[in-house]
Design a protein around this nucleic acid. Structure first.
Length: 421
RNA sequence: GUGGGUGUAGCUCAAUGGUUAGAGUACCGGACUGUGGAUCCGGCCGUUGGGAGUUCAAAUCUCCUCACCCACCCCA
């Protein structure tokens, strides 16, 4: 009871257990099934990488690299980092193992923990799990649409309410550079009207001013739209992605203010957002990253993907009353005098594949029935001297309170049948 | 890094600056060895997050600090 010296989990890191873990596991299973159904292949990469990987991929000027990485010097004096995201690792792996010699595009999905040293709040932690997909080696707009389709299917399969798909194009390095200049040109006369954050953004990342919530609508109205500045190829690509989405019956909203904070994105960017998430409303986010592979030393290779926050997904499922609890449990109540029969039947049922609870406490049947109820068992089976004589057990359905005598040899069939009801 | 909110028993919460900080719930035991989470009785549970100060007297007032939550920034 003395908690003075209690050691807690590290700030921003959480234990996952109980109901949350059930949802977590259910979600993970569904995500992987969907990715597999799109013929994506699993890949596991290390949770630690040389720091340079993220500096070159995520971008040296981004918040993630500037102040959020768990970076340290290992015993051979190399700078290593706990991964803040996984796309960089997958592309590193692609280059390192010469995956370009395989039939392209390659399609991967991944799942694992990530680390960012941030101030925790709703939907944001220092240790969190990401699921994601990456399709590498083709610039077809159909591949963009396919990746978005996976994201949309996740929401559909898990019956998520209040979610929507937002999409935008931020162009390639040619047209985005032109757009940035134009944006600054228009903003310059209004520099003094900008909020403190935007004054900084004006120099670091002017695109960010687009989605600032503080700026006046009048100012935003005069800002040029990226779509109007896309080069012919980017425009064609974006229109084609939208066309595919329509043909695939995926509802979406074009959001001209959608820009993303990682440097590697090009052309298509998208998010699936939920109103159940608070300020951190993005369930998943991603886009195209056509320059990343060559940035990491590979030959120029276009790619597209997204990452999804598991904790956020679980949060949505919880707020929508999703039940993931596996309640299938048989509680064995027995009289102490027939323990041997009880343990025999228990093991038999376990071998049949059922989840069987054998209490270490014995007590009266009343007592044991109470314990069974507290454990949320679906069934209680009673084994006493009478049952031993007749070679049967009494099975009680704890939900309906019905009970019936079942011959020991019929138990497997009986419970199999119950499970299918 | 910057703001705001909250810290009292495992959990949910009480307690005008004034007895030994209390309830409910959970847990354990008994009533109770052939059937439901009940009821009754009993037990266990606190350096009031931590530290300093004001005061005859602090859970309560002041300051500092820590933790959690929420928001900004940014992101999954």
């Amino acid at each position: 009871m003395k908690e003075k010296y209690m050691i807690t989990s590290v700030k921003g890191f959480k234990d996952i257990y109980g109901e949350d873990l059930e949802l977590f596991k259910t979600a993970r299973r569904v995500l992987e099934e969907i990715a597999e159904s799109f013929a994506y292949e699993d890949i596991i990469t290390p949770i630690i990488e040389y720091s340079e990987l993220f500096e070159r991929s995520v971008g040296i000027d981004t918040d993630i690299v500037e102040k959020e990485m768990y970076t340290f010097i290992d015993k051979s004096a190399r700078s290593v980092t706990l991964r803040p995201e996984i796309t960089a690792s997958v592309t590193r792996s692609y280059v390192e193992h010469h995956f370009e010699t395989k039939p392209l595009p390659l399609r991967f999905y991944y799942f694992g923990p990530c680390f960012r040293y941030e101030k925790p709040q709703k939907g944001r932690f220092r240790g969190f799990y990401q699921f994601g997909v990456e399709a590498i080696g083709d610039d077809s707009p159909l591949l963009d649409a396919e990746v978005i389709d996976i994201g949309y299917n996740i929401a559909k399969k898990l019956e998520l309410k209040n979610v929507s798909v937002k999409i935008n194009s931020i162009g390639c390095r040619k047209c985005r550079a032109i757009y940035k200049e134009k944006l600054k040109e228009v903003l310059e006369p209004h520099y003094d009207e900008l909020c403190e954050d935007c004054k900084r953004r004006f120099y670091t990342n002017p695109l960010r001013i687009l989605d600032c919530k503080k700026e006046s609508p009048e100012l935003k109205d005069i800002l040029p739209k990226m779509i109007d500045y896309l080069c012919d190829d980017c425009k064609k690509h974006f229109d084609s992605v939208l066309d595919y989405l329509q043909k695939m019956n995926i509802p979406f909203e074009i959001d001209n203010t959608l820009v993303r904070g990682l440097d590697y994105y090009t052309r298509t960017v998208f998010e699936v957002i939920s109103s159940d998430l608070g300020a951190q409303n993005a369930l998943l986010g991603g886009g195209r990253y056509d320059y990343l592979i060559e940035e990491l030393g590979g030959r120029p290779t276009p790619a597209v993907g997204f990452a999804l926050g598991m904790e956020r997904l679980v949060e949505i499922m919880k707020s929508q009353g999703f039940v993931g609890r596996d309640k299938w449990l048989i509680y064995v109540a027995y009289q102490q005098t027939v323990f041997e029969r009880a343990i025999f039947i228990t093991e038999k049922l376990r071998n049949y594949g059922f989840k069987v609870f054998l209490d270490v406490k014995n007590g009266s049947f009343k007592n044991q029935t109470e314990r069974s109820a507290k454990r949320n068992a679906e069934f209680t089976i009673f084994i006493g001297e009478e049952e031993v004589k007749t070679g049967s057990v009494v099975v009680k359905n704890m939900g309906t309170k019905e009970q019936k005598q079942v011959n020991i040899d019929d138990l497997n069939g009986f419970f199999k049948e119950q499970r299918n009801v």
